[in-house]
Design a protein around this nucleic acid. Structure first.
Lengths: 159, 159
DNA sequence: CAAGATTGAGGGATCAATCTTC
DNA sequence: GAAGATTGATCCCTCAATCTTG
C-alpha cells in the first residue's frame, strides 16, 4: 500500500510540477522554518534521512536552483540550506494538488476512529524501531492528522 | 514509518543473508508456487511491481544464481522464472530471521483490533488508488495477518 | 495494433571512505 | 577522536523506447 501511495504521489507531483516527493518534503520543511533556512543535519533529522542521502539530494536540488547552501559562522564545520525564491514559487504551485491527492487517497476515506488507530499504531511501531536499532530517532510530523480532521474540504489546502 | 520499517528489514536481511527486501519478495513468491515457477508478468502482478522493474530485478537475481529464466512453449512472447536450488537454500536460511523482525516490530506490538483496522484501512486505500489510476491492481497478500494472529510465537516461523 | 518482455538513461538511496573543523 | 558534511561506487526504480510474437 505504501509503495503504491508513494508512486501515486510521485506521479502527481512530476505531472503537475517538476518535483519529486523527496523534493517536496525538503521544500515544505524549509518553508516551515523562519527564514526558510535550516542546518543540514537538522533537515536530515526532520525528514528522517541519512546524512549521505540528504547531502546528495540537496546537491541535486541546488543544481536545479531550488535551494542554496550557506556557510555557518558559529560552527565552521556546519552549513545551512536555504530555500530560494524559485523554490518558494514551485512549492506554492505544487502544494494544493499534493494535499488534494493525499486527501483523496487517504484522509477523506477514513473516519476519526481509523485515523486515531493509525496515529497510535505509527507511534507504537516507531517506538519498536527505536528499540531495535539502538536509538533511531523517529521524529516525523509534517501534517498532524489529528488536528485538521474536522476542517471542511474547501478550507483545507495548506501542506 | 514505512520508510524506517523497510530500512530495518533491508538491514536485517543483508546482515543475516545476502538478500535485499525485493530479493526476498521474489523468492517467497516463487516458493509458494508449484514447481517454484511463475510467468514473469504474474510475478510482477503478485509483487505489485512494474514490468520494467521486475525485468531488471530478475536479471540481477539471475546473475547471482538465485533464479533462472525459461522459455514458454504455449506463448512464445512470454517467459517463466524459476527458483534455483541455491535460491531455495538462501530463502530458507533467511526466512526465520525476517519473520522474527516483522513480528518484533509490528505484529507483536499490536492487538487484534489494531490489526483489523489496519487490514481494513489498507483495503480502503488500495481501492482509492485503483480508482485514481484507472484500474491499478492492488493484489498483495503474502502474509495474511488475520489468519496467523493467534498462533503462539514459538510455532510461527513460516514466511 | 496489443501483449510479454527487455534495454538504456537518469534520478534516487545506501554504504564506506574521506575531509574539515571542533 | 568525534561531529558536520561530502564523495564515489553500487544497487534500486522509473520512464520511454524497443524488440518479438500474437
Amino acid at each position: 500500500m505504501h509503495m503504491q501511495i508513494d508512486a501515486a504521489l510521485n506521479r502527481q507531483l512530476s505531472e503537475d510540477s517538476d518535483l519529486s516527493h523527496p523534493d517536496y518534503v525538503v521544500l515544505v520543511t524549509l518553508t516551515a522554518q523562519p527564514g526558510g533556512r535550516l542546518r543540514i543535519s537538522e533537515l536530515a533529522q526532520a525528514s528522517g534521512w541519512e546524512k549521505s542521502r540528504t547531502s546528495h539530494h540537496l546537491a541535486r536540488m541546488a543544481r536545479r536552483g531550488l535551494v542554496e547552501k550557506e556557510a555557518c559562522e558559529s560552527d565552521r564545520r556546519g552549513a545551512f540550506v536555504v530555500i530560494t525564491a524559485r523554490g518558494r514559487e514551485v512549492i506554492e504551485a505544487a502544494a494544493p494538488g499534493h494535499v488534494a491527492i493525499v486527501r483523496r487517497l487517504v484522509v477523506d476515506r477514513l473516519d476519526t476512529h481509523d485515523l486515531d488507530v493509525l496515529a497510535r499504531v505509527t507511534e507504537t511501531v516507531l517506538a519498536a524501531l527505536a528499540e531495535e536499532t539502538g536509538t533511531a530517532l523517529a521524529i516525523q510530523a509534517h501534517t498532524p492528522v489529528r488536528e485538521d480532521r474536522h476542517v471542511p474540504p474547501s478550507d483545507r489546502n495548506t501542506p
